[in-house]
């Protein structure tokens, strides 16, 4: 029973609206349609999210982690490659990484700032290459150092550790390969 709607009919209470006239035009169909679509979508989304798909942020995170596990599983070979070598290339690569991620706390001259000095003979968490790699990988959250392992990956951690070891040895006038020996008197 669609009634013919009169368009542009003045309502006639402009005397009570400071002379502003008002039409009583019908709601635009597409506008009303849009309104109903959003309402229906809203109900459908709510029901689907909570009662059909049983979604939640926790479920989404678990799914993403499972996907990542499959997609980026670290091959054994790559793990094996990640070891500390003191080659010129490795040290040069390590320097680039240090400049990007480490200078903010340890200083461009490696003499420390927010984080400790790396050129002296004081090692808070052990001075062997093994200890240094572990410190970089796991961080020292209690002192504000974040774990860099998940960020850089084992290979880059080893490169930057090589850079630190070689610069430290240089500053102290030692042979950098000393640090490669398993810990004895650190």
């Amino acid at each position: 029973m669609k009634q013919k709607v009169e368009r542009d009919q003045i309502l006639g209470h402009e005397d009570e609206a400071d002379g502003i006239k008002e039409y009583d035009n019908p709601l635009p169909d597409w506008w009303l349609g849009l309104f109903w679509i959003t309402v229906i979508w809203g109900v459908a989304y709510l029901v689907h999210y909570h009662f059909i798909a049983h979604r939640s942020p926790e479920a989404a995170l678990a799914q993403e982690l499972a996907d990542a596990e499959i997609r980026w599983a670290t091959p054994e070979a790559a793990e094996a490659e990640a070891e500390l070598v003191l080659s010129a290339e490795a040290v040069a690569e390590g320097e680039g990484i240090f400049r990007t991620y480490c200078v903010a706390c340890h200083g461009a001259n490696m003499m420390g700032g927010i984080g400790p000095n790396l050129l002296d003979d004081e090692w808070l968490h052990g001075g062997t290459s093994e200890n240094i790699v572990k410190t970089i990988t796991d961080g020292v959250p209690a002192m504000g150092m974040v774990p860099w392992g998940p960020v850089l990956g084992a290979e880059q951690v080893n490169r930057v550790a090589a850079y630190v070891v070689s610069k430290n040895a240089e500053a102290l006038g030692r042979d950098p390969s000393d640090a490669l020996r398993p810990s004895e008197g650190s």
Partner: peptide, 14 residues
């Protein structure tokens, strides 16, 4: 509507 000097399009919509 004062500046345009035109009637408001739809009372119902408002």
């Amino acid at each position: 509507p004062r500046a345009a000097e035109r009637p408001v399009y739809s009372y119902r919509l408002s």
